[in-house]
């Protein structure tokens, strides 16, 4: 038989979704870093995590399509090189004093304690474009957790609070299980934090 009649197929890439997810992950990482500084509730939640703890949120598979050429030519302030070498991801680190810091997307040489892995780009897209709430995504097995499950619960809770801060009510309602009432979170606090987090996340 002529086996060339049945060619091998290498499926392509989803560029738009990759870029979108990368931007969203970057925003989430930065926003958590800022929220941990300015909001008491987030700080209290993050206090549950042990010190000297690194968390990674990524889209499987790792190192799927390394872009060595771009990584070598593009300067670091244009694009995080970790994204090009290792795939889409973000790292958060809680240091010895309990400060949260966004570490970019380069996992090289870092010990990752908790790894939250979206099974595929489509899963990450569903979650980060708010078509599925975090809880639904967890139920639909859109992501898996490597490491201590307990810490991932803390992270999901923080994510929920930050989403309430950052997103308008109509979208945040899709992303969280229960939108907080006035008694739980005053609109003033929400609005002030929203402005502060956006400004600080996108400036430094």
């Amino acid at each position: 038989m002529n086996i060339n009649k049945y060619p091998q197929i290498r499926p392509g890439k989803k560029l738009f979704k990759r870029v979108y997810v990368a931007i969203m992950l970057w925003t989430v990482g930065k926003a958590i870093q800022v929220a941990a500084k300015v909001d008491k509730e987030v700080k209290e939640e993050l206090a549950r995590l042990p010190n000297n703890f690194t968390l990674r949120m990524m889209v499987a598979p790792e190192k799927a399509f390394p872009l060595f050429f771009y990584a070598k030519t593009l300067p670091a302030f244009v694009v995080d090189k970790g994204l090009l070498f290792y795939g889409i991801q973000m790292l958060l680190h809680k240091d010895k004093e309990g400060k949260i810091k966004y570490l970019g997307a380069d996992p090289k040489g870092k010990k990752v304690d908790l790894n939250i892995v979206f099974k595929n780009i489509e899963a990450a897209w569903l979650v980060l474009s708010f078509q599925e709430s975090t809880a639904t995504a967890y139920m639909h097995d859109r992501f898996v957790v490597e490491g201590d499950l307990v810490h991932s619960l803390t992270f999901v809770r923080v994510l929920d609070i930050v989403e309430v801060f950052l997103l308008p009510k109509i979208i945040a309602k899709l992303a969280v299980k229960r939108y907080p009432k006035w008694s739980e979170m005053s609109p003033l606090r929400k609005f002030v934090k929203r402005v502060v987090i956006y400004i600080r996340a996108y400036t430094f």
Binding site: R48, A135, M139, V150, L153, V156, K177
Partner: peptide
């Protein structure tokens, strides 16, 4: 807050 079962509960 430390138990995984809280994720699957319908209400927060």
């Amino acid at each position: 807050m430390q138990d995984g079962a809280r994720m699957a509960n319908p209400e927060e």
